[in-house]
Amino acid sequence: MSLWRGLHPLILASQSRTRLTLLTSAGIDVEVIPADIDERALQQASNLSAPGEIAVVLAREKALFVSLKKAGHYVVGADQTLALGDRLFNKPADRSQALAQLKALAGHTHDLYSAVAVALDGKIVFERTAMASLTMRPMAEADIAAYLDAAGDVVMSSVGSYQLERFGVHLFERIEGDHFTILGLPLLPLLGFLRSQFLLAI
C-alpha cells in the first residue's frame, strides 16, 4: 500500500538498494536516478575534514545534481562517512582493501555519520545528519577472511566493508545509535519533513 501523496514519485539520487528498501518499505513511491558525481573529488574540493560535514556536502550535491534535471520533484540525496579517530574510510576498491579496513576496525569503536538532503527545483529544502557508534569485536585475520568469503562482493558497496543488515552483524559486540542511521539514511527525520509537506498519508 502506498502512503505517498505527492504528484510525482520521490526521487532517490542513490544506487543504494538498502536506502531504496527503507523508503519503499515505508510506503513511499520511489524513482531511482543515481547522481553522476565524483564523490572523492567533491570531498577533496570541499577542504572539509569533519566526517559529518563531508557527508552533508555529498548528500546535498547528489540531491542538487538530480533536482536540476527534474523540476517539481522532491529529490533525496544521502551519504555516509566512517571515522576511526581521525582516519576516514571510503568504500573498498577490492577484497584486499576490505580486509585491511576490517583489520583496522577490529577491536575498536568507530563512528558512522549518515546525512540526508532533499532538493526541490534546484534548492535544498531539508537536510539532517545523524551519528552512530559501533564497536567491532577483536578478530583474527582468518575470521575476517571467513566473513569476506561469506559476504561476497557486496562489501565493496559499503563504507567500512560491512553491511550490518546482513552477515556484517557478526562483526560487532556493541552498537549505539539509530538503526536507520547505521543503514545509511536518517529515515525518521526525513519522514517528518515529508509529512510537514503533506506528502504522506499518515
Rank of each mutant, 00 (worst) to 15 (best):
H110L: 05
H110T: 03
D111P: 03
D111T: 14
D111H: 14
L112P: 02
L112F: 12
Y113K: 01
S114M: 03
A115D: 06
V116C: 11
V116A: 08
V116D: 06
A117Q: 03
A117I: 02
A117N: 04
A117S: 11
V118E: 02
V118A: 08
V118K: 05
A119H: 04
L120F: 15
L120R: 15
L120D: 05
D121I: 13
D121N: 15
D121T: 10
K123A: 12
K123H: 14
K123C: 10
I124N: 02
F126V: 05
E127S: 11
R128C: 13
T129P: 00
T129E: 13
A130T: 09
A130E: 14
A130G: 11
A130P: 00
M131F: 08
M131A: 09
A132S: 10
L134H: 04
L134C: 07
T135H: 12
T135D: 05
T135L: 08
M136G: 04
M136V: 13
M136P: 02
M136A: 10
M136Q: 12
R137E: 13
R137A: 15
M139W: 06
M139T: 06
A140G: 15
A140W: 05
A140D: 14
E141I: 15
E141V: 15
E141A: 15
A142K: 13
A142W: 02
D143Y: 09
I144E: 02
A145L: 09
A145T: 10
Y147A: 05
Y147T: 05
L148I: 06
L148N: 03
D149N: 14
A150D: 12
A150I: 04
A150E: 15
A151V: 11
G152I: 06
G152V: 07
G152E: 14
D153A: 08
D153K: 07
V154D: 02
V154W: 01
V154S: 03
V154M: 08
V154R: 10
V155Y: 07
M156W: 11
M156N: 10
S157T: 13
S157V: 06
V159M: 10
G160R: 12
S161E: 02
S161H: 03
Y162Q: 03
Q163W: 04
L164D: 01
L164R: 01
L164G: 02
L164C: 04
L164Y: 04
L164F: 03
E165R: 00
E165M: 00
F167H: 14
G168I: 01
G168L: 00
G168C: 03
V169G: 07
H170I: 12
H170Q: 14
H170V: 13
H170R: 15
L171K: 03
F172I: 11
E173T: 09
E173V: 09
E173M: 12
E173G: 07
R174N: 09
R174Q: 14
R174Y: 07
R174C: 07
E176Y: 13
G177W: 15
G177C: 10
H179A: 08
H179R: 06
H179N: 05
H179V: 03
F180P: 00
T181Y: 07
T181N: 07
I182R: 00
I182Q: 01
L183S: 00
L183G: 00
L183Y: 00
L183I: 02
L183R: 00
G184L: 01
G184S: 05
L185I: 11
L185M: 10
P186D: 13
L187K: 01
L187S: 05
L188K: 13
L188G: 04
L188E: 15
L188P: 03
P189E: 15
P189I: 09
P189H: 12
P189T: 10
